[in-house]
Design a protein around this nucleic acid. Structure first.
Length: 480
RNA sequence: AGUGCCGUAGGCAAAUUGGUUCAAGCCGCUAGACUUUCAAUCUGGUGAUUUGCGGGUUCGAGUCCCGUCGGCACUACCA
């Protein structure tokens, strides 16, 4: 049977980094096995599910290059299946109606907590007589449906990441609710564990790959498979993503959703690469790769059991590497919208060659895409502002003369690095000054700052817009 | 409270899956080179007194067992 995996996010928030990492593992495994990757949106909780989140999830996956083969399917459109499944369980006597009120249940939990016991349902309504049920109903109580979980059951499976896993029925918290309250004969809205199993069976899922936080659910779900007479799929539980302190990653840790990373200026390639590294290591030790490169090397043998701490430094490094190696053309396409947002004036079409020159100049210095905004500010500006250090430099002795000499040498043919260097050399000779003096003064006069991207390139960029002479004139005035 | 998992340098993490006295590599940090500067890049350095701690099994343990401490996760009419 061919491999079929699924990603089953619930649209109660933006695409979470943890979900995205799960998606990466599912995708890698599916592609490695020549299998099918199914996308299923788990929106059975109608109050919390929102269309905007679904869109965010779909966009995020697409952006990361995690294409799915089937779906997206929506659980909210599949209630018939779940109803039938619940009814089957009821008919088989493996599930029953429980009339406990929420108050009763929370009181039970409170008392257990007070007695320092693990919270669990005590199965008190498992064997109600028809008369008792009728009495509850006349009382106005509306029942949920619970699936029986025997305390002495032992559940085992061979996890692709953790090896053999054993679980006791008694540690599953008692009979579990599989459908929300509803008046009989209705069965109510299905709950997570039931819907998952019904769908995974219906969609012929062969491998369930998800986060470690689902491990207890797996035990429950295996019981459901059994009750429905089906063979459970293979399971793989990936380690959680932790923050620097070792706790589950949360909003306080900077960013938790893929869209936030995207807005911060990370590339999809870097984020995808980094997520694959969170809990998995390639056999050849090569840490930089594209997702498609990794498909051939991926296996759950090399997925770690320990949680993976999120390392911003490494993500940043990965992002800078990808930006440095990106073709100028492609990089420029990403920079244009950022520059436009910043209010820089240029013609994206007509100024293309000029923009490419700017891009090439700053490319080696980028870590995040938006870094390009600050770095190019003085290149786009019509006027130049001199900061304190630049001002001081310009007021230094002989600086004005040097700049005047440079300005005098600038002609319209200045178009290459060699020509610019030639001018610099000529001025050095003419004024008998060191190269450093010329360069430093030129930098101050041209860009208004003492540091920034390559000066000669910057100069050429400014020259193409006819800005160099004007700026030098202003700089010379500063020194007088 | 119970159950489960994890614990290798500041971070990620490798170790033919018990086998030799080098416990990889990457990030970070750091020095130098290059450069007008910052960054990038290149070269070198820094890192575990040894694998949380204490026992045990074994000819031999980071790798197995027991205990202990610590961290995390899960125990919803959320997913």
């Amino acid at each position: 049977m061919s491999v079929r995996v699924r990603l089953a996010p619930s649209p109660t928030g933006n695409l979470h980094i943890g979900t995205a990492r799960t998606a990466v593992f599912n995708w890698l495994f599916a592609r490695n096995q020549g299998g099918t990757f199914v996308l299923r949106i788990e929106d059975t909780d109608r109050d919390r599910s929102k269309a905007e989140f679904t869109n965010n999830i779909l966009d995020g996956l697409t952006w990361l290059g995690l294409d799915w083969d089937e779906g997206p399917f929506f659980q909210s459109q599949r209630f018939d299946l779940y109803d039938r499944t619940v009814q089957t369980l009821l008919d088989k006597g493996l599930a029953y109606r429980c009339y406990c009120t929420p108050e009763e249940l929370s009181a039970l939990r409170e008392s257990q907590k007070a007695a320092k016991q693990a919270p669990r349902y005590d199965n008190r309504h498992r064997n109600l007589t028809p008369q008792q049920e009728a009495d509850f109903e006349t009382e106005g109580r509306v029942p949920v449906i619970r699936f029986k979980i025997d305390d002495d059951r032992e559940i085992t499976w061979d996890d692709m990441v953790r090896g053999p896993v054993k679980w006791k029925g008694s540690d599953l918290g008692g009979d579990m609710v599989i459908a929300r309250a509803a008046k009989r004969p209705d069965v109510g809205q299905p709950l997570y564990n039931l819907a998952v199993v019904a769908d995974d069976i219906d969609m012929d899922i062969t491998h369930v790959i998800r986060g470690e936080d689902h491990i207890a659910n797996t035990a429950k779900q295996i019981l459901l498979y059994e009750a429905l007479g089906k063979t459970p799929p293979q399971f793989a539980h990936a380690p959680l993503i932790l923050n620097q302190k070792g706790a589950k990653l949360s909003k306080r840790d900077g960013a938790t959703s893929v869209s936030e990373f995207r807005e911060m200026g990370y590339t999809a390639a870097a984020l995808a690469n980094y997520m694959a590294l969170l809990g998995w290591s390639p056999p050849d030790g090569e840490e930089r790769f594209t997702l498609s490169d990794a498909t051939a090397k991926f296996s759950f043998d090399r997925v770690n059991k320990a949680g993976a701490k999120f390392d911003w430094d490494k993500l940043n490094w990965l992002n800078s590497q990808i930006l440095h190696e990106m073709p100028i053309d492609a990089l420029l396409d990403r920079l244009i919208p950022l520059w436009q947002t910043a209010g820089y004036e240029f013609d994206p079409e007509g100024d293309r060659p000029w923009l490419e020159r700017i891009t090439a100049t700053i490319a080696p210095s980028l870590t995040l895409l938006p870094d390009a905004v600050d770095m190019t500010r003085s290149l786009f500006a019509i006027d130049v502002e001199f900061d304190d250090k630049a001002t001081k430099q310009l007021q230094g002795e002989g600086v004005s003369e040097v700049l005047e000499a440079v300005a005098a040498n600038i002609d319209n043919s200045l178009n290459s690095e060699d020509e610019a260097q030639a001018i610099i050399k000529a001025v050095m000779k003419e004024k008998d000054v060191k190269k450093g003096v010329v360069m430093k003064s030129l930098r101050a006069g041209l860009t208004g700052s003492l540091q920034g991207p390559d000066l000669v390139q910057s100069w050429l960029v400014l020259h193409q817009r006819g800005l160099d002479k004007k700026r030098l004139e202003k700089a010379i005035a500063m020194g007088e």
